[in-house]
Simulated assay, not measured.
Amino acid sequence: MKIFDLPLETDRLILRRVRHDDFDDLFPIHSDPEVCRYLPYEPRDEAAMKEAIEKRVALVEMTPGGEPLFLAVELKETGEVIGEVLLFYHHEEWRQGELGYVFSPKFHGKGYAYEATRAFMDAAFDQFNLHRISARCSAANIASWRLMEKLKMRREGDFREHEIFKGEWDHMYIYAILEDEWRAHRS
């Protein structure tokens, strides 16, 4: 069982545990059909978003194969939550994690996703002693895989028509980076 030392801070952001009062900022993100286009759920109504926040708030420690840790990404300047980053802790012995993220479209193109995921990956390698972090996305989600490449993750998988996702054949990319590669890029 592991717990992150939080909050994490960057020049412009605070990454912290999700709170109940984040509903007003997170609901517009998770109810947006364009945002949810690439997520494994449909746009959430208020009840579904409240339930999702309850699960995020209730998670106090991470266990291998358990629920992912979600962190709210808050702008230091305004206190507005602009998105979330998440980490699945897949395997303790093999030290495997999987990164995810979602951001409000009104904050795209400003470098916030890169800043937040970079800080989160630093913490995941340092605090969890992870050996490898992976991430996946639809090949059609160009912004997502470009972010992974900007993080110096390498494309390890290209799965064409591997499953039906939201009524269509999905084309998925899998990216990953090893701890020593991460540290080499960060130095």
Results as ranks from 00 to 15, higher is better:
54 E>Y: 07
73 V>C: 11
136 R>P: 04
28 P>F: 00
154 R>W: 06
97 G>F: 01
7 P>E: 09
137 C>H: 13
174 I>V: 04
122 D>L: 01
124 A>I: 14
123 A>K: 01
118 R>I: 02
44 R>M: 14
88 F>H: 14
50 K>W: 06
171 H>S: 14
124 A>Q: 05
148 M>K: 02
169 W>R: 00
95 R>V: 07
43 P>T: 13
185 H>C: 05
94 W>I: 12
66 G>K: 13
8 L>G: 02
86 L>Q: 05
66 G>S: 13
118 R>T: 05
158 D>E: 15
153 M>A: 03
169 W>M: 08
84 E>L: 12
116 A>G: 03
113 A>L: 11
84 E>I: 12
34 E>N: 09
75 L>E: 04
63 T>C: 15
127 Q>T: 09
98 E>W: 05
161 E>P: 04
179 E>K: 10
41 Y>G: 07
106 K>D: 07
182 W>Q: 03
68 P>S: 03
154 R>S: 15
174 I>E: 15
89 Y>T: 07
155 R>H: 08
166 K>L: 01
55 K>E: 07
61 E>T: 06
8 L>M: 08
50 K>Q: 12
88 F>M: 12
154 R>N: 13
49 M>P: 05
101 Y>Q: 00
153 M>I: 06
165 F>E: 10
34 E>A: 04
39 L>N: 08
184 A>T: 13
168 E>L: 04
114 Y>Q: 07
74 E>I: 04
130 L>P: 08
90 H>Y: 12
138 S>Q: 13
130 L>I: 09
115 E>Y: 07
33 P>K: 09
140 A>L: 15
99 L>Q: 06
135 A>F: 11
76 K>I: 03
49 M>C: 13
156 E>F: 04
18 V>C: 12
77 E>N: 09
76 K>F: 14
168 E>P: 11
101 Y>V: 00
31 S>R: 01
